[in-house]
Design a protein around this nucleic acid. Structure first.
Lengths: 252, 252
DNA sequence: CCAAAAGTGTTCTGGCTACACCCATGA
DNA sequence: TCATGGGTGTAGCCAGAACACTTTTGG
């Protein structure tokens, strides 16, 4: 820290953006698609192009809070899982100098409709927002295509060693539903028998006494054990610290 | 992006800091210790305390470049591996609002002495810098203790699935030396026989015709295969893209 | 010759895969 | 009854752990 602080007019601004994924069941499609909301830009750099939801960092809020706030302001959505992805700060990634702290998030499929319906009922439905299949995006503003690709890579990675998939499911779910989420993210079929054993052995699932009926043989409903995932988190945060969440994501 | 840009005087400043590890052989110690350089603060917030090397982000440089530059300016060191760690931006982590983009880095043990000797010869030896055992740090400035803990966690994690250890070794090394690096980072003994097979099977090592003699039976020297690690990287970066390095670290 | 690290071989085990098979339900 | 997904059993394979053993040097 030997340098003097930058001049006030040496404008490096800090933005916060969020790549928020959910699953959408497409009719006639084998698997659900990973989709994300984008916002159409109405201003000069890249006007008319689609961009990640986000906004400027406020001086009075932390980074996590900024991600949640800007996401809500632009899309009306509140994520069920939120984790910092990466800080992008190349000089030429924007006409003006902008450092973007990017988050990635998950939203339970049932919550998407619920939250949007609530906004529609209140008359403050978000504008200029549209949902896109993550696998086939148009050219986005700034470096947002690369950012989405990186977020997708992280999501697929994390599915392998973490029980992140529950961020896309309602509280109670069947093992078949959980498997379908994993299949959608990974893009390939998983053996139902082996998936079941793995999931049960992970210790993160609590079987309930309820069953999902309607189709064929009723399937037992499971709940997610919120205590277990602490082990997956990074360092410290002594199990009850009220301080800022450690780097590794927060659950809503 | 519905909000207006922040006022120029709404001073959220962007700093860049680096946790740079190397190994130090302690006499009479079983394993080498993980050590890192810290800088004694000479200014108001936390004056006199030790802090991570870093500085303010310049408007004309990218984040990676800023990490390298501020690290060189404060400690005179140039890392052999550099990767972004996390962006810290809690409102109360500093008296004034500072968002810190933190990097973590590795430096080959042989390079440490070489680089410091070069600075000493030129008479621009860094001041107020001291090396600390990462396992027993004093209370540092700001939230730097937590940051170091998180960096250590990432380092230990990455050793498991990546061949990151070569960032702490000279170009040519024996499997015994490579194993000792892993043992120092993980803090436990590894079976020499199994470690050898794993390392050989990884495909990342190129055996040379040279041997390290002097102690007992001569040990074959290996070289690191720089082509392989690309697979470990994140997304895209089509194998020859000159653009900014993808999130996942750069090798010097 | 001895100590010690380099390097090889072998066994055991746990986890994962593949796949056969039974169970319970709606239609 | 049949089709379908839920759920169980099991054999094969492979990676890692443990450890016995041989090899090659310096002293």
């Amino acid at each position: 820290m030997t340098r003097t602080p930058p001049e006030p007019d040496a404008a490096t601004r800090v933005a916060v953006s969020t790549v928020i994924f959910t699953l959408r069941r497409m009719p006639h499609a084998e698997r659900a698609a990973v989709v994300l909301p984008l916002v159409r830009r109405t201003r000069d750099p890249f006007e008319g192009r689609w961009a990640l939801p986000g906004g400027w960092l406020d001086v009075t809020e932390g980074l996590d809070a900024a991600a949640s706030r800007t996401l809500a302001e632009t899309t009306g959505l509140a994520p069920s899982y939120l984790e910092q992805l990466y800080a992008f700060g190349d000089v030429d990634r924007s006409p003006t100098r902008v450092v973007s702290i990017v988050y990635w998030a998950l939203l339970r499929s049932d919550e998407v409709d619920a939250q949007l319906a609530e906004h529609a009922a209140r008359g403050d439905a978000p504008e200029n927002v549209s949902w896109f299949d993550a696998a086939s995006l148009p050219p986005l503003a700034f470096d947002h295509n690369q950012i989405v690709d990186y977020a997708l890579w992280r999501l697929r990675n994390k599915v392998g060693y973490s029980r992140i998939a529950h961020g896309l499911l309602p509280d109670a779910f069947t093992l078949g539903e959980l498997r379908e989420v994993n299949e959608s993210i990974l893009g390939r079929r998983l053996d139902p028998a082996n998936f079941r054993r793995q999931a049960e052995a992970s210790g993160t699932l609590i079987p309930t006494d309820a069953f999902r009926t309607g189709s064929h043989r009723p399937a037992r409903l499971y709940r997610y054990n919120r205590d277990v995932e602490l082990a997956e988190r990074g360092p410290l945060l002594p199990a009850g610290s009220p301080a800022s969440p450690s780097p590794e994501g927060i659950h809503a």
